[in-house]
């Protein structure tokens, strides 16, 4: 699993590539965890997970997403995911995560939904 993080206006955009299963779920959690910590400097109010490069995910990875979603909800922050590959979208549907997470077809649409300023900056490259 590989990851990269960008800050675009008031959105933290986290891109995940590769596989998230029982072997890599901890690493996935470590990528997301710093952005859920609201005890230090104020974190950006919105998180978008770009899962366009995610090719494999099991229940271990879904659990990490749920931890993130619960933490954001408790802090009054927004969290969404975007750009699911077809097999990952199926897993979200089977696990009913499509009913509890905000899912956007593309990163552009996810940013537009979360922040018009971030969407403009994204489009400007």
């Amino acid at each position: 699993m590989e990851s990269s993080v960008r800050q675009i206006a008031d959105v933290t955009l986290i891109r995940i590539d590769g596989r998230v299963d029982h072997a890599t779920a901890k690493a996935f959690e470590e990528v997301i965890k710093p952005h859920l910590d609201d005890t230090g400097a104020a974190p950006l109010p919105k998180i978008l997970l770009d899962l366009g490069g995610l090719s494999f995910m099991t229940s271990a990875g879904l659990r990490v997403l749920m931890i993130a979603a619960k933490a954001c909800a408790a802090q009054g922050r927004d969290l969404a995911v975007a750009a699911l590959q077809p097999a990952i979208a199926e897993i979200f549907k089977i696990s009913r995560f499509d009913l509890v997470l905000k899912i956007h077809p593309t990163v552009e649409e996810g940013l537009s939904s979360l922040s018009s300023e971030a969407a403009v900056l994204w489009e400007a490259g």
Binding site: I91, I94, S95, F97, L99, V100
Partner: peptide, 27 residues
């Protein structure tokens, strides 16, 4: 339960999920 139910509204109700069963059994 579904996995979403198991880790949200039915957390700590004492039951597992169809997909967790798959992951454990495959391993």
């Amino acid at each position: 339960y579904s996995l979403a139910d198991m880790v949200t509204v039915k957390e700590d109700w004492g039951h597992s999920s169809n997909v967790v069963g798959v992951d454990l059994c495959l391993r």
